[in-house]
Design a protein around this nucleic acid. Structure first.
Lengths: 114, 114
DNA sequence: TTATAACATTAGAATATTCAAATATATAAT
DNA sequence: ATTATATATTTGAATATTCTAATGTTATAA
């Protein structure tokens, strides 16, 4: 595998490494949406949304369709949502681990049962 | 979904957003490895590898086992590799798209067949 | 107990990202 | 032509990340 491929992969993950961009993707799961729609769903100002959309588009994660004065964004490859699902699962596993750890710690702190 | 969850997800992806960290994960696919092993496989200096390992560990993506004076790193949740696989697939799809685009552009530049 | 090997941490300059505000562009409606 | 709406881009200060080199720490071996 050529060395640069990992650079591209890193760039790809960098595109996902922002809370607003994650939220945008989650909103686009249902299908394409205009900037205004995204903006009002996320309750963010126009400029921020536009900026983050442009990052996702720049990394080819989103694609656009122009209709009149509106621009509709959608995922270029729906597999991005599979990726988010796996991330969620990994995340849940981790949380469960943490909870187990916490309850273990709690048990240690409990007075011994008599 | 609570708002902070997207922050955690973003942090998670941020951990993957670095070429060296991607390379480390790819090397750990086969199983646990010591810092020295990773270091020599990647041909990087000790400090850099240690720093990046610490990022991955800090985000709970890697876990460690101590044996004598060595420390062995491994994936906490093997599902991380599924995630990398999906990323690779998305990436391949994209490259294919680019190639198609390129060859289309090439065709446009060709003189018309007579 | 000293030396060495394996690893971690710190420090600080260089670089990249984020954020908010302002400005720019394009289309549609009047 | 002018205005309003939808979106994009620019700018610069604030913040975060990266990188390299140096210094710390811990366990083992001599």
């Amino acid at each position: 595998m050529p060395y640069t491929l990992q650079n591209f992969k890193a760039e790809f993950f960098k595109a996902l490494a922002h809370p607003v961009r994650i939220r945008i993707l989650e909103v686009l799961r249902e299908g394409e949406k205009s900037v205004t729609e995204i903006q009002s769903l996320l309750e963010l100002d126009q400029s921020s949304v536009s900026q983050q959309l442009s990052v996702l588009r720049g990394k080819n994660i989103l694609q656009t369709r122009k209709s009149g004065t509106s621009i509709f964004y959608s995922a270029r490859d729906p597999m991005i949502f599979d990726l988010l699902d796996i991330a969620r699962t990994i995340f849940n596993n981790q949380l469960i681990g943490t909870q187990e750890l916490l309850s273990q710690l709690d048990n240690e702190k409990l007075p011994p049962a008599d």
